Simulated assay, not measured.
Amino acid sequence: MIEVYSWATPNGHKVHIMLEECGLPYRVHAVDIGAGDQFAPEFLAISPNNKIPAIVDPDGPDGRPISMFESGAILLYLAAKTGKFLPADVRGKFEVLQWLMFQMGSVGPMLGQAHHFRLYAPEKIPYAIERYTNEAKRLYGVMNRQIARHRYIAGDEYTIADIAIFPWLRSWKNQGIDWNDYPHLKGWFDEIAARPAVQRGVEVLADRRKPLVDDKARETLFGTTQYRAR
């Protein structure tokens, strides 16, 4: 039984979806990031960057427990463990890995900044809003062109690249996106959203998440709490 420490965010949902797609048994432990659960010593012991998700697999690759943090690394670990959603051939593997890195290095950070400045920042900064909204549109354009040539993000097979990217696009409206501008990507999005495992994955902890409307939650996520020495 894999122990999953997570919350209902795009990065959390990546791992929830992967576990559902692989059919692995898992147990979820809610880490309420608005309440500061991510700073608890027991969580920092498995996720030193105080970010969700993290997992503990009691049946690690050498028969001993292993803990993992960083959602992209967890996807790679689960793909290796199950032999699913990552091609075995070298060329196919690296085609997937480059798009996984695209998500980790661009889609997640840039769309996260778009969310922050469009929704959560205490003051509206036009330059920042325009900067990250335009970057979101650029990234959607990159993916739309890729999907115009292939059924899935990294080619013609469903892989961890699709699993990594999909949760971040669920908040397209908050990113200033008009789906009419990205018809190929919209078709891909609808196909992924219809997968039963994806539908189950995005429901994990969804009933626990609350809008970030109170000052304490905002300070915990975006204020000085993040920068205290631990």
Rank of each mutant, 00 (worst) to 15 (best):
Y132M: 10
T220H: 09
V90S: 14
A128I: 11
P183V: 03
R131G: 03
E95W: 10
L97E: 13
H115E: 15
P211Q: 02
P211C: 02
K186P: 07
I125P: 09
N11T: 13
A229M: 11
H115G: 14
M68W: 12
D32Q: 05
V96G: 01
N180C: 09
A73W: 01
V107L: 09
C22Y: 09
A206Y: 07
R208M: 14
E3W: 10
I33P: 01
E3R: 12
Y5N: 04
K51C: 04
M104E: 14
M1G: 08
V4I: 10
I125H: 11
E21H: 06
L185P: 07
S47V: 05
F85N: 01
G36S: 08
L169G: 05
R138V: 11
R138G: 04
P126M: 04
M68E: 15
V90E: 13
A30Y: 14
K81V: 04
E203V: 13
K81T: 07
I177F: 05
K93F: 13
R138L: 04
E203G: 15
A161P: 08
L78T: 07
F117R: 06
V202C: 02
W7V: 13
K84L: 12
V198D: 00
N144P: 08
I52M: 05
E20R: 11
A136V: 03
D156Y: 03
D215A: 15
Q98N: 10
R149G: 11
G223L: 00
I125R: 10
L24V: 08
E135K: 09
V4S: 01
F69Q: 02
S171P: 12
I165N: 00
K186L: 09
A136N: 03
H116A: 06
P53I: 04
L24I: 12
F189C: 10
L44V: 13
S6P: 08
E135A: 06
P41E: 04
E135F: 14
F189Y: 15
Q226P: 09
G176Q: 04
M101Q: 15
N49D: 14
A128N: 01
D89G: 00
P48D: 01
G201Y: 05
L119A: 12
G176H: 06
V90C: 14
N11Q: 07
H116D: 04
G36W: 09
L111W: 11
R230I: 13
W188F: 05
S106D: 14
E219K: 08
P87N: 01
K186Y: 11
L78E: 06
G187A: 06
Y26M: 00
W179I: 13
F117T: 02
L100D: 07
A193L: 09
P87I: 05
V90L: 15
D59F: 08
D178C: 13
A40L: 15
N134E: 08
F85V: 05
Y158P: 12
R218T: 07
P196H: 02
I46D: 01
I153R: 00
Y26E: 00
Q98E: 15
W99D: 00
D214K: 03
G72P: 06
S71I: 06
L212E: 01
G108N: 00
R149N: 10
H184Q: 15
E203I: 12
Y132R: 02
N134R: 14
S67V: 06
A40P: 13
I46C: 01
A206F: 12
H116K: 03
I163S: 00
I125C: 03
